[in-house]
């Protein structure tokens, strides 16, 4: 399926969610309405002609210093790929600084859980209804979000003690029926 066909397909599936599209060095970028992203991803995953069954990556970008940028401050890019059909596309949503919140897709892909946690940790983007949105790369006493452009690169933060992780463990055991 070529890029144009994917875009047309998406327009027929969810016309109200599409804000625009672009060509990124040969790959299709579809700009999607922020609150509709989970629906769009699900539709693209489940549609047999598109069949994006592999979530490649979730990238968060802080556009606050980007020359000539007038849109919302944060961008979140979802790289999707279909293993069977071989095509790729990006979905991009933008989210404002005051309310950096995007619906989660962690129920659709297994790796989205950690990728969203990383975007939260590094860029401070909140993923609504994520089951366990906490820091993943930085330690739990870290304040701020290092990949934001206003975070100075040498602002170091010491850690006093590592996490016990028992809160996650208890949640997991409860799910498995332990009392």
């Amino acid at each position: 399926m070529d890029q144009q066909a994917i875009l047309e397909k998406l327009k027929t599936l969810l016309p109200e969610a599409i804000k625009g599209s672009a060509d990124r060095y040969g790959q299709l970028e579809v700009q999607v309405e922020r609150l509709k992203i989970a629906e769009v991803v699900k539709a693209l995953r489940d549609d047999p002609e598109v069949g994006f069954n592999l979530l490649i990556d979730i990238v968060s970008v802080d556009y606050s210093n980007y020359p000539g940028w007038t849109g919302d401050r944060f961008g979140v890019i979802y790289h999707l790929k279909s293993l069977g059909l071989g095509h790729r596309a990006w979905l991009k949503v933008t989210t404002p600084e005051e309310e950096p919140s995007v619906p989660t897709i962690s129920h659709l892909y297994g790796n989205a859980d950690w990728l969203e946690r990383e975007a939260f940790d590094q860029m401070g983007i909140r993923f609504a209804h994520h089951p366990n949105l906490k820091r993943i790369l930085n330690h739990h006493e870290f304040v701020g979000h290092p990949l934001r452009k206003d975070y100075p690169i040498t602002r170091r933060q010491w850690l006093s003690a590592n996490e016990s992780l028992m809160d996650e463990m208890n949640a997991r055991l409860n799910k498995k029926g332990y009392v």
Partner: peptide
């Protein structure tokens, strides 16, 4: 092992 929780970031 009945349940496991993993943590990364020690070499971030």
């Amino acid at each position: 092992i009945v349940a496991a929780v993993t943590e990364i970031g020690y070499l971030h």
